[in-house]
Design a protein around this nucleic acid. Structure first.
Lengths: 142, 142
DNA sequence: GTGCTTGCAAATCGTTTGCAATAGC
DNA sequence: GCTATTGCAAACGATTTGCAAGCAC
C-alpha cells in the first residue's frame, strides 16, 4: 500500500484535498477494486480497517470526490448510487440477477468529445448502460 | 377523453389488465403528458381528479405497467424514478437546473435491435442519457 | 362470495442534516 | 488556536409492506 499511498497523496494535493486517513483508505479501495461499489459496500470494507469510520464520512467523501472530479456517480438501479473511479468515457452493464456492474468499453458516438450540444441542450455528462443477464449468470446451471 | 378511453381499454385488455378508474386515469395522464413524471407528480395530478387515490396505488400501478411492458422506468437522478410511456428506443436529456427530462431522438448503435449481446452478456434493456443544461435554462437571463 | 384492487398506516432503505467532539496544519 | 473533518443521532424522502375494507365479475 505504501507506494500507492504516495501516488494518491499527490492526486489529493493536486485537488486541494487533505489526505486524511479515511479518505486515503477509501480512495485506495476504489482504486484497487474496480467493482463499482455502492456506499454500503465501501463502508463495510473500510470499517474493517478503520472500525470507527461512519457512513456519514463515506457519503461526505463520495460527494467530495465527485465534486473534485476524482470519481463519477452511477445511478443505474434507482435505489442507490454506485461509484466509479474510472473517469474515461465508457458504458456499463448491470446484471439483473447478481446486481454486478461491468465496464463496457464502448463510447456513445453522440456526446463524447466531438459533441457538446444536442437539440440546443448543453451536454456535460454522458451516461450509457445496458441491463440484462451477465455471462456468469447465464453460465450458471440454474 | 372518451375516444382515448376506448383505445386505452383495448390496450389494457390486451395485457390482461382490469380497466379500473385509477389505472385508466393514470395511463391517460401519461399518454397525454409526455413529461417523464415521477410518482409524486403523477399522484399530485391524479388526486385532483380522484381525491381518494393513494400514493400506494400510484406505485402499484407503475409497477404493473412496467411488468406489462406499457411503460419504462427511468433512473436518472438516483433519488427517484420517473416513467416514460414511449417504449420506442430513444435517449434522454436531463437538465441539472430545472430537472426536466427531454426525449433525445437518437438510438445507441450498440444494443438496439441488431445487438443483443455484449461481452457475453445478454442485453435486455438499453439506457442512455445526457446531463447538462437545457436550451430553456441556457436562454434564461440568469 | 371469491379474488383482485385499493388505500391507510407503519416500516424500510438509502441518504442528508445538525451539531458536538476531534484532528491536522 | 483556528478551521476542516469526523461521526453520532435524528431527520428525511422515496418506496415498500401488512393488512383491512371495497369493488367487480
Amino acid at each position: 500500500m505504501i507506494p500507492n499511498l504516495k501516488k494518491i497523496k499527490i492526486i489529493f494535493a493536486d485537488k486541494g484535498l487533505k489526505p486524511t486517513f479515511q479518505r486515503l483508505a477509501i480512495y485506495n479501495f476504489l482504486d484497487k477494486n474496480r467493482i463499482h461499489p455502492n456506499a454500503d459496500i465501501i463502508y463495510d470494507k473500510i470499517v474493517k480497517k478503520i472500525p470507527t469510520i461512519s457512513r456519514t464520512t463515506v457519503y461526505n467523501t463520495m460527494k467530495l470526490f465527485i465534486e473534485k472530479g476524482l470519481i463519477q456517480e452511477l445511478t443505474i438501479t434507482g435505489t442507490e448510487s454506485c461509484f466509479d473511479i474510472d473517469m474515461a468515457p465508457h458504458h456499463h452493464f448491470y446484471c439483473k440477477i447478481c446486481s454486478k456492474v461491468y465496464d463496457i468499453k464502448i463510447q456513445c458516438p453522440y456526446g463524447y468529445d466531438h459533441l457538446n450540444n444536442i437539440d440546443g441542450n448543453k451536454i456535460e455528462e454522458v451516461h450509457g448502460y445496458f441491463k440484462g443477464i451477465c455471462h456468469e449468470c447465464l453460465d450458471k446451471p440454474n
